[in-house]
């Protein structure tokens, strides 16, 4: 699998895809959706779709694709090769959500949670397949969040397509297993070959599984914690593991959308800074005049002490 396009800028989200088999444009198709790397605190989360004509379901089954989690890395690589060899009737597409995209989305002012991010990635991929001419009739997907809601959301998006949202879909439907293999292979490659945008010299690549519970992952997170910047973009800042480490070991950073306390809200209404309350005392005089609006609009004020 060639991740070159993602690796040129691994701070953003990236779509990779196989060519669309001609068969898929002429016959009714089924499509599976699955993801890899949802839980880890490191690296991208990858969404994958895999599709083939409904008439080829048995051929796909014969490739012996199984849930990627039950396979070794080598087995997954081999199965991905087999899928590639079956390109006359099997197609796939991937959405790689970089850890930076995940952090940025989850930490933005109007919070964009992981479920919404996942749903949108899945919907985007299915839309891509339809727009590329795939004659889509059936969609199978493992559930993200409440199954009924997800099913409803997908059905609404794609009228005329039969949507099946099912827990453990990756072990029940070969087309979902195939999607999970594509996603997992991409995720493994992305993590293994991670090019740090930061200038960190030789980075220890012994990340462990990337799961917060893995001691190797934990010690890597401790080793690469910077007191000011926190982490390289390889780490998902929005994970509580990362947040907790930063809260205890890095310098505190305050943003204007941190939860407001009463004092701050009052200060904001008066258009003054909280700091001015307890450090730089306001100018004397019984009736301090309001500064002219030229200055208040520009946040300019006299300086009492340096």
């Amino acid at each position: 699998m060639d991740l070159g396009e993602f690796e040129t800028d691994n701070s953003v989200s990236c779509r990779l895809s196989s060519p669309i088999p001609d068969l898929c444009k002429n016959e009714d198709c089924c499509l599976g959706i699955d993801e890899a790397g949802r839980g880890p605190v490191l690296g991208p989360m990858v969404y994958g779709i895999c599709f083939c004509p409904v008439s080829k379901k048995e051929d796909l089954k014969a490739l012996k694709v199984a849930d990627s989690k039950t396979l070794t890395e080598t087995e997954r690589e081999n199965l991905f090769m087999k899928l590639d060899e079956a390109k006359s009737y099997v197609g796939w597409a991937l959405q790689i959500l970089s850890p930076n995209t995940i952090s940025n989305s989850m930490l933005q002012r109007s919070k964009y949670n992981l479920n919404a991010l996942s749903h949108d990635a899945a919907i985007g991929l299915v839309r891509y397949a339809i727009d590329s001419g795939v004659q889509l009739k059936e969609v199978f997907v493992d559930t993200v969040g409440p199954a009924e809601k997800y099913q409803e959301k997908l059905s609404q998006q794609f009228p005329g397509v039969e949507v099946t949202v099912r827990p453990k879909a990756d072990s029940l439907f070969p087309v979902v297993s195939a999607a999970s293999i594509c996603a997992k292979v991409a995720r493994d490659h992305a993590v293994k070959g991670w090019k740090f945008a930061e200038d960190l010299g030789d980075v220890d690549t012994d990340y462990g599984s990337g799961y917060p519970s893995d001691p190797k992952t934990k010690s890597w997170l401790l080793k690469y914690l910077d007191p000011v910047f926190g982490y390289p973009q390889f780490v998902r800042f929005s994970w509580s593991t990362a947040q907790t480490l930063l809260d205890t070991k890095a310098v505190t950073v305050h943003w204007d959308d941190d939860e407001e306390d009463g004092e701050k809200a009052a200060a904001r209404q008066n258009n003054t800074s909280v700091l001015s309350y307890f450090s730089r005392k306001p100018s004397h005089g019984a009736h301090p005049r309001e500064p002219h609006r030229f200055f208040s609009e520009r946040k300019l004020q006299s300086v009492d002490t340096l």
Binding site: N100, S103, N104, F229, G230, Q233, F237, L246, V253, W255
Partner: peptide, 8 residues
């Protein structure tokens, strides 16, 4: 564009 502490 840049990110600081995960924020855009």
């Amino acid at each position: 564009t840049v990110s600081f502490r995960g924020r855009p």
